[in-house]
Nucleic acid binder design. Sequence first.
RNA 1: GGCGCCGUACCCAAGUGGUAAGGGAGCAGUCUGCAAAACUGCGAUGCGGCGGUUCGAACCCGCCCGGCGCCUCCA
Length: 493
Amino acid sequence: MLHLFNTLTGTRELFEPLDPPTVGMYVCGVTVYDYCHVGHARSALVFEVLRRYLEYSGYTVRFVKNFTDVDDKIIARAREQGVSCEAITNRFIEAYYEDMERLGVRRATEEPKATEHIGDIIRLTETLINKGLAYVVDGDVYFSVAHYPAYGRLSKRRLEDLQAGARVEVDERKRHPMDFALWKRSRTDEPSWASPWGPGRPGWHIECSAMSLKHLGETFDIHGGGMDLIFPHHENEIAQSCGATGKEFARFWVHNGFVQVNHEKMSKSLGNFFTIREIFAQSEWPEPVTGEVLRYFLLSTHYRAPVDFSDRALKEAKNALNSFYDLFERLKEPSTIAAHDHGDLNGVIERAQTSFVRAMDDDLNTPMAIAALHGLRGEVNKLLANALSSQGRMQARQAFRTMGKVLGLFQLEAWQFGASCAGSSVHDAGHQHEGLAPGSARLSDDEIERLVKERGEARQRKDFKKADEIRRTLSALGIIVEDKPDGTSRWKR
RNA sequence: GGCGCCGUACCCAAGUGGUAAGGGAGCAGUCUGCAAAACUGCGAUGCGGCGGUUCGAACCCGCCCGGCGCCUCCA
């Protein structure tokens, strides 16, 4: 039974979908005017994991994630570069997909764009005007917060408090300083669409109301986004949606915490952000490995807590993953043990699964879920030391795959991860590593295999001096050689 | 000024009333030709501080200290 922290109520609540087994979930995506940074990655990842876990729990998820492709910053960026807004948005949507793919973030079931819903937005705005919740001034349309009594429900703010703190210059044409634009009159060189109020474009908040309404209906299960969206964006969405339909809007509001650098929020204005592509470009690991390391790092902190980004943290994530993939490689090695001899494997797996589910059910406690996987790692290592049949080994690997899939971890083959590889002095060393060469290693696999074989031969004739010399050579190139009990060796980068 | 978050061992990080998970690093041991990996053992009498409630508090309440976020675009 999944429990989720609901920002609306400020408490952890039992999650039950409105219309099981379907779950309707809307998450605010990105404004496509620049590359994504780690903060965007975290948000995308958190809600993807929620989606994966809901699916793991047997639900069918309708997952809607939007692109904001009309916005002041997009216009500014286009002007700056002397290109059209479409050129900007197309470019960064494509970049978004590239980044997400490298992180292993699956696409949502629907990914609507604001510009494809102008008609819906206009109709919704008209409804709000007709209901007396919005008014027109010189081709602009504003939402009237004073006419929506529940304003502030999500962010727990009172209009009076907001008024006192408002530091922005007040637009004299607005009836209340907190009134916000549903529709903005366009200047001549800005993108615009015909509307009952003249040519213009939608305000920021209205698109999410219109798109969620269209794709998920008036009331749906989960609405997510970064904590910084609670106010004003989500507050305004609620006002618009509930104002227009008179119905409940999203039932659960889920917000992720920030990625920080040196304990400060990672943001454009502070200039302390790392784009996802920068991290991949600078990574010493192969691309799929870097993606998994980032996932592990981001999921090893609870989604609502802040997480501090650093090279060191990434390295720690890599080390932790190494211990899993090292095990997976050993699980692949052949066993002479009888097929029925599993020890207490079934019990061990069952207990790990119970802990894993309990953790995930508890407001998506991924750090605890990861701890359960570490527990299983230790148990399987012990069983392996006491010998485990080939069948048992496969079963164990499959358990890691199944639970790991919820977090998007453990799906690679050990050789892809750069974990221990069977050396040429052993069986089936046929793995191909082309295209995965990490920046640090200059030797080809063939050369490494040759040296490992040479070392094996030296060991056989007890020429340990020579053997150690070869190992040192390889070690200097970042290649670790491990000797197995049967006298053969495995290696890893 | 208003709203809110965080502070747990050297580092990361769970735990939100019943007596401190897990990972990394470190140290010691087993194994090994030597290693590595794995396994075993060691490590906070204490959870920012001070009070209070309670049979019992890291968890609840109050005050204080330190760090941060939102209130303006922001994942």
